[in-house]
Design a protein around this nucleic acid. Structure first.
Length: 596
RNA sequence: GGUCCCGUAGCUCAGCUGGAUAGAGCAACAGCCUUCUAAGCUGUGGGCCAUUGGUUCGAAUCCAAUCGGGAUCACCA
């Protein structure tokens, strides 16, 4: 049951009767009562004082009196200025709790016929370098949003479009050919993506050296950059690749193979998965036909030099090239092609979501506008899940220069810190070695994932590698710890919990009531989180719930409670709390341990 | 320069579909482990919510301008 809409309904009836209004339940301003005041919900009465022809205080009292008379669930009220605070009966909250308990997956809707089919693209790595912190945000965000959308009864197809071709890929290939001496991940015991990334950096170094030399010989900077031998070799290689030169293709396959193996390890550590992989080498030629189609429809036009453009100046955008004068594709050509291809491949698709950084806001505006102009009505259901950059205190990350926070290093560092902390706290007893390894990963990754996901995706976020991610306070381990504490109590409880019956006569402790309210909120937060594609809402919700639990834990003994009815109720209460914590964290891709 | 995003405590972030005295965490300080795991709980200090003006009974929240920061405006991806 949605408590707010139930109350709004009641209030609108009362208000309409009292003041001869025609207020709809939706227009009632209702909020949770602030901590400092007595009550559960608060009605803002300012909107009614005119119709009531009374002061805010009098208006509040009028409404309060009538609510008290009309609704048995409302047992008390007080008025402070224009605010009517009212309390709901003990039994009301107990019943609410029973309803939650009766739904094993409270807040989570099963996939049903009214659910949508949604494609969500995320990750989209380049195969010339390892993943870094920016990719971590992308991956965690994409995976988490997919989970969250699923809880609302939708089907999500997670896809990864791998950027496996192009000049940047050739750069690391050339560098490897020149300086690699036949190195392989096996020979160097290096992760494949790191090995290839090393040569990408090597390319940049050599390229800078060569341009500097040419500049010293008197060439202009621009000229030098064009004429550097290594750049010419790279361009030549790209041509060979496009001409399907067997030796080049062979090297490309080999090196990309190394990278994929490396990526798989990182993806596994991050716990992200995909339903379908797309490779740009297969899709980059798509879209040319679309351009012809657009030309025929006079949506695109040909310029004198032969390039094809679209004029979006009326839309507040610019003129954009969609096909080069030499007839080759640009970025947006393939994106048009890929989108249309996917729509054909999945005819039931209701929405396409692209998880890509906000530096590409403009690109996606143009892309969606193009699709719309081409007459694809699903274009307005396309959504760019845009997220802010992860910033470092020293400035930007540049993978070419190797000044990045590497994903694997960061992950390993987090796990190592988890290990250190656990050992320092002396909490290693009773675990097998394997269980400990798993625990360190759970805690380390929990801390990292929570750190990233608790902030609003739209906003840029700051990450200071020098300050390690915290394990105290508003963090993943804080929640994991509370969960483990609950499980510890449940392990000691002698009866099977499913047999427990919640008695009606229980007088709720303040912290118990707060906790029930907190449990109820899960469903609302999850829905809000899904609607706004924002995992931070769930993340912050679970934190709030955990705080409520910790307060309860401090004030209300469970196993030591002498009254058997109360004890069993509390068992049920914490069991439900642990389930919601677990389900909430699962949405974020974070595991919660049974003990820690 | 055009367009878009962002400015909240020393730091990292909530709150933004307008409502009461603006919240957390970290850091600092002070309490709580013969009581279910102290990765916890309780308390103290810390704020012209960038600035100015407007709308409103009421503005951190909406509007405008200014200042500061970032992104983007490629026949790169």
């Amino acid at each position: 049951m949605n408590i707010e809409s139930y109350l709004s309904q009641t209030i609108s009836v009362v208000v309409n009767h009292l003041f001869e209004l025609a207020t709809t339940p939706e227009s009632i301003v209702l909020q949770k009562t602030k901590k400092e005041f007595e009550g559960d919900y608060t009605l803002v009465t300012f909107p009614f004082i005119k119709a009531a022809k009374a002061t805010p205080e009098q208006t509040g009292k009028l409404i309060g009196d009538m609510l008290l008379k009309e609704n048995a669930n409302i047992i008390n009220f007080n008025v402070v200025k224009g605010f009517l605070n009212f309390s709901l009966a003990n039994t009301f909250w107990l019943n609410e709790f029973k309803e939650i308990v009766a739904q094993p997956n409270y807040g989570i809707k099963k996939a049903n016929s009214s659910g949508k089919q949604i494609m969500l693209e995320y990750s989209s790595p380049n195969t010339n370098k390892p993943l870094h912190l920016g990719h971590i945000r992308n991956n965690l965000l994409g995976f988490s949003v997919a989970n969250i959308i699923q809880t609302q009864g939708h089907e999500v197809i997670k896809v990864n479009l791998i950027n496996d071709r192009g000049i940047h890929i050739c750069k690391s290939m050339i560098a490897w050919k020149l300086f690699g001496n036949g190195e392989t991940p096996e020979s160097t015991h290096e992760k494949g993506d790191h090995l290839v990334g090393k040569y990408y950096v090597a390319f940049d170094k050599e390229y800078k050296k060569q341009t500097a030399e040419l500049e010293a010989q008197g060439l202009a900077k621009e000229e030098a950059e064009k004429k550097a031998p290594i750049m010419l070799q790279t361009q030549d290689m790209l041509l060979k690749w496009e001409a399907n030169d067997s030796e080049t293709i062979e090297l490309w396959k080999t090196m990309n193979g190394w990278v994929y193996k490396g990526f798989d390890v990182t993806y596994k550590k991050l716990g992200v998965t995909f339903d379908k992989l797309y490779y740009e080498s297969n899709t980059y030629l798509l879209g040319k036909e679309i351009v012809q189609e657009g030309l025929a429809k006079h949506i695109f036009y040909k310029k004198e030099n032969g390039s094809v453009c679209i004029d979006l100046t009326n839309e507040g955008l610019d003129e954009k090239v969609v096909l080069r004068s030499d007839g080759t594709s640009v970025y947006i050509t393939q994106d048009l092609g890929t989108a249309i291809e996917r729509a054909k491949e999945f005819p039931k698709l209701n929405q396409m979501i692209y998880t890509v950084g906000n530096e590409q806001d403009y690109h996606f505006k143009v892309l969606f506008k193009c699709l719309e102009k081409l007459g694809y009505d699903w274009a307005k259901e396309c959504f760019h899940l845009s997220y802010g950059m992860v910033e470092l205190p020293e400035g930007k990350m540049k993978s070419r220069e190797g000044t990045v926070v590497d994903a694997d290093d960061l992950i390993d560092g987090m796990v190592a810190t988890a290990k250190e902390t656990t050992e320092e706290l002396g909490k290693v007893e009773g675990f097998t070695t394997d269980a400990l390894e798993t625990l360190y990963e759970t805690i380390g990754m929990g801390a990292l994932k929570y750190f990233i996901l608790k902030v609003d995706p739209k906003k840029k976020m700051m990450f200071d590698p020098k300050e390690s991610i915290d394990f105290n306070g508003h963090t993943g381990p804080f929640i994991q710890y509370a969960h483990a504490r609950i499980k510890s109590i449940l392990r000691r409880f002698e009866k099977p919990t499913h047999e427990l019956i919640i008695s009606d006569g229980i007088e709720l402790h303040a912290k118990e009531k707060e906790l029930i309210k907190g449990l109820y909120e899960f469903s609302i937060s999850l829905e809000e989180s899904a609607n706004s594609f924002n995992p931070a809402i769930v993340a912050n919700y679970v934190y709030e719930l955990t705080k409520l639990f910790n307060q309860f834990y401090n004030e209300c003994p469970v196993l030591k409670e002498e009254n058997e009815t109360v004890k069993e109720f509390r068992i049920k209460l914490i069991e439900t709390t642990s389930t919601i914590m677990k389900n909430g964290m699962k949405c974020l891709g974070i595991e919660v341990p049974e003990r820690m």
